[in-house]
């Protein structure tokens, strides 16, 4: 199995993703420079977190015009699996591959903390190894993660089961205080209609190495790997 990690100028979680995929999950893992253009041979692609192009103008706004994004769009339109984490999620919404937008956190603060997420559906390549309703502990690390979209789009997302992850408390409830950044409807991760593209603000690569106490992030990568195997 062959996976790729796209590196933009300013990506800074690329090495963490590389480490988890190559050394923990033992995959053939490749760097993909943002000026590269060919993706067809990959089983899945990760757009990692960071601050591509310094977050200038809006996070992801400039990265989405990198040469590689045309290939990522073609790859996704052909059914290729694409996971965007944090800044990767911001790039996916700016590029139009995912609906909505990620705005300044409601509290105007950069938030770096461990928190809990509820898996809303396991009928995606990114959550297939989870049970629907499972609570995962995965950290966030962002200043602009408040998910927002218009009410028609929100309804469509809900109706199609495209809301994949929600911020929740330890028991899976969604009281207001379990929403760290003011995201609409507690949304932490969404997929496209075909469910082959998902973006999430939390960082699964930061809790996927067995040297650490928490390996909940592995569930996302294991799901991706298993569903890629099923399709290869």
């Amino acid at each position: 199995m062959k996976c790729g990690i796209v590196v933009f100028p300013g990506s800074n979680c690329d090495h963490d993703c590389y480490h988890i995929l190559k050394h923990v999950h033992q995959l053939e893992t490749h760097w993909i420079w943002h000026k590269d253009e060919v993706l067809d041979s990959f089983d899945f692609i990760v757009l990692p977190g960071g601050f591509s192009y310094g977050d200038y103008l809006r996070p992801g706004a400039i990265a989405r015009f990198s040469p590689i994004m045309k290939s990522v769009t073609d790859y996704a339109n052909k059914g290729g699996r694409v996971l965007g984490i944090c800044n990767g999620f911001q790039i996916l919404v700016e590029s139009g591959l995912l609906p909505g937008v990620l705005m300044d956190n409601a509290g105007q603060r950069f938030i770096c903390k461990d928190l809990t997420l509820r898996v809303e559906t396991n009928e995606t390549p990114f959550t297939s190894q989870c049970t629907t309703g499972t609570v995962l502990r995965i950290p966030i690390n962002h200043g602009q993660g408040r998910y927002f979209t218009d009410s028609d789009t929100l309804k469509r997302l809900k109706d199609n089961g495209q809301v994949i992850l929600r911020y929740c408390d330890a028991k899976g409830g969604t009281p207001e205080e379990a929403n760290p950044n003011g995201s609409l409807d507690h949304i932490a991760g969404v997929a496209n209609a075909a469910k082959n593209v998902m973006g999430m603000m939390p960082h699964p690569e930061r809790c996927a190495d067995p040297l650490w106490n928490n390996v909940d992030g592995q569930m996302i990568f294991k799901s991706l790997i298993e569903s890629s195997l099923a399709h290869s």
């Binding site: 103008l57 809006r58 706004a61 927002f148 979209t149």
Partner: peptide, 8 residues
């Protein structure tokens, strides 16, 4: 295209 995100 770039300067505004017309969603918001």
């Amino acid at each position: 295209k770039l300067l505004a995100n017309t969603v918001i």
